[in-house]
């Protein structure tokens, strides 16, 4: 979503993005002319008339599980976004019985929050696990 019109979106997809992604961008490119939606989401920069690089993870109940907002010159890390979605999906599937500690990615150990874990995280999780 950006402040550009859907016509500009089409031109960008036709003329440039389709040269990067076969068949063009598959998902909806939304128009927020005037920045009304961006204002509600806290990403619209009135002075420059543009929206910051905001990224919101919204679960199947419509609840915001996480977000990240960057100023324009720095791009996102798509893999980190996917990792977070996978982590939120795992937590949801286990109905909160499992949680993903720092550095978790698919295949790495989860934690099972509960009274037995109090003061015992050091046994279950090592500092190296925070890093890839």
């Amino acid at each position: 979503m950006s402040i550009d019109s859907m016509f500009t979106h089409k031109m960008w997809d036709d003329d440039e993005l389709s040269k990067m992604v076969d068949g063009g961008i598959p998902f909806p490119m939304l128009s927020d002319a005037g920045g009304k939606v961006g204002t509600v989401y806290g990403v619209y920069d009135e002075d420059n008339g543009v929206e910051a690089r905001g990224r919101f993870i919204i679960d199947p109940d419509g609840v915001v599980q996480g977000y990240e907002v960057l100023t324009p010159p720095v791009g996102r890390n798509v893999n980190e976004t996917f990792r977070q979605v996978q982590a939120f999906q795992l937590v949801r599937e286990t109905k909160g019985a499992e949680a993903t500690p720092s550095g978790w990615r698919p295949g790495k150990a989860t934690l099972k929050p509960g009274i037995d874990l109090v003061g015992k995280v050091w046994k279950e999780w090592k500092t190296e696990q925070a890093f890839d």
Binding site: M1, S2, M6, K10, I25, I57, I58, P60, V85, F88
Partner: peptide
């Protein structure tokens, strides 16, 4: 919005039941 050769209208709540990544960008 625009998607795959068509102009469309999107409502966020139509996506209830699915995971959504909503991304804003400068332009």
């Amino acid at each position: 919005g625009y998607q795959k050769g068509k102009f469309i209208n999107i409502k966020l709540s139509d996506y209830l039941g699915k995971w959504v990544l909503l991304c804003f960008y400068p332009g």
